[in-house]
Amino acid sequence: MGLSNFFNSLFGKAKEKAEVAKENLTEVAENVAEKAAHKLEELKVNEKVSEIIDVAKEKTAEAAGWVEEKAHDLKESLQNVAETVEDKVEDLTGNKEEEKPAK
């Protein structure tokens, strides 16, 4: 297994975990917002507080999107690093895959 495969596997898992975290964060934010809105309705709190909750929900969704984007950016960066390291190792060892004789 080459270094790029190792990093792809490693950071592919990190991206998957970030996506799961985003989904969980979004779900929690929606549940909290829904419960808060229901409670506010029960308490007959004014509309301004409901607007604040809506903004908080929107910002949480934006944060979740940011987390997913950064995880994707990190994966791409690390794939590039892995490829560069693999190329350097091949250059130093003289073990390029193209130069290997066919068996």
Rank of each mutant, 00 (worst) to 15 (best):
L25N: 03
E62F: 09
T60S: 14
E47V: 13
S77V: 03
N46R: 07
D87H: 11
E34D: 12
D91Y: 08
K48Q: 12
K39T: 15
A102C: 08
E23P: 01
K88D: 12
V20K: 11
E41K: 14
S9A: 12
T60I: 09
S77G: 05
W66S: 05
V32I: 13
G2K: 01
G12P: 03
P101K: 10
E23G: 06
Q79P: 00
L43Q: 12
E98G: 05
F11K: 00
K100W: 09
A37D: 07
L43C: 09
A36H: 01
K17N: 12
K96P: 02
E97T: 09
T26A: 03
E99Q: 08
E16L: 10
A63N: 08
D73P: 01
E42A: 10
A56G: 12
E41R: 13
E83K: 09
E42K: 14
E41W: 11
E90H: 06
E68G: 02
A61Q: 03
V85A: 13
E41H: 13
E19I: 04
V32Q: 02
L78S: 02
V49D: 08
D91H: 07
L43V: 08
N46D: 15
E47D: 15
E23L: 10
I52G: 06
F7R: 01
L78P: 01
L92E: 15
K17A: 15
F6G: 00
E51H: 09
